[in-house]
Simulated assay, not measured.
Amino acid sequence: MTELTKKRPEFRNINAFTDLTTYRLPLAGWVSILHRASGGLMFILLPLIVWLFDTSVSSELSFERFSAAFAAGIGFVPGWFFKLVVLAIIWAYLHHLIAGLRHLYMDVAHAVSKEFGKSSAIVTLALSIGLTLVLGAKLFGLY
């Protein structure tokens, strides 16, 4: 090793307070973390998801109440906040689905390489964010 070559740091025991600010996680790592976060978000918001589904299909009157929640809100919670929460659920579902399919494909095809990890992570993020933007535009009434 020459003197001009900079020695790369070794992380053996990562300290969350000092090392995480300098640690550069690869894109595939971020997708994996977001896969877990999206699953956790869907689990936490499951009561809301069940309420949304139940209210939307129970009767015509409950569907009107459901639609009014998005338009005018309920109580002190404005309608745009409900839309943002539903947008988060949409992103969580789409990201979890696409990242899960990515993980299944890698498990079945044994496609574990640095290049495939990076390219499939880019595709996962592009698809999940792109589809979320399209469905979010529909949710907020842009088309």
Rank of each mutant, 00 (worst) to 15 (best):
Y105H: 14
I98A: 02
L94G: 01
N15P: 01
F11Q: 03
I90C: 02
F11E: 03
V86W: 06
F76M: 10
L34M: 13
S113A: 09
R8V: 10
P26I: 10
I89H: 00
L34N: 05
H96F: 15
L139M: 11
S59G: 09
K83D: 00
P78T: 04
S38P: 05
L34A: 13
G100H: 08
K6A: 12
D54V: 14
A37H: 05
G130A: 09
W91Y: 15
F53L: 13
V50G: 04
P9L: 10
Y23I: 13
I74A: 04
I49M: 12
N13Y: 13
F70S: 00
G75C: 06
G136E: 10
S119K: 15
N15Q: 05
V86H: 02
L104D: 04
F76L: 09
S67R: 09
L61W: 06
P78F: 06
A71V: 14
A126M: 12
A111G: 11
P26R: 09
M42C: 11
L97K: 01
S67V: 12
L4M: 07
A72T: 02
F81S: 06
T132Y: 10
G73N: 02
F53C: 06
T124Q: 05
G39Q: 07
H96V: 01
S58N: 11
F63P: 00
A126L: 15
F76W: 13
Y143V: 08
G40H: 05
W91R: 00
F76T: 12
P9W: 00
K114R: 14
H103V: 11
F81V: 15
L41Q: 01
E60W: 11
N13G: 00
G29A: 09
T132F: 12
A99N: 02
G29F: 09
L133Q: 03
E10C: 04
G136M: 08
E3M: 07
S119W: 15
V123D: 02
V112W: 14
T22I: 13
S62R: 09
F76Q: 08
P26K: 10
E115S: 13
N13K: 11
E10Q: 12
H103D: 07
L97Y: 11
V31H: 01
R65H: 13
H96E: 01
V57D: 02
H35M: 05
N13E: 12
Y143G: 12
I44L: 14
F43Y: 07
G141Q: 08
W51T: 10
V77R: 00
S59W: 11
L101H: 03
T21H: 07
W91V: 03
V85Q: 02
I90E: 04
W51H: 08
W30C: 01
Y105D: 08
T18Y: 01
L101R: 06
I74D: 02
V108I: 15
P9S: 09
F81C: 04
V123Y: 11
R12D: 13
G79Y: 05
S67I: 06
E64T: 06
F70I: 00
T124H: 05
T124C: 12
F17H: 05
V134A: 14
G117W: 03
Y143L: 13
R36L: 15
G117T: 04
G29T: 09
S38L: 06
A137R: 09
S119D: 10
F53H: 06
F81E: 04
T18S: 10
A28R: 04
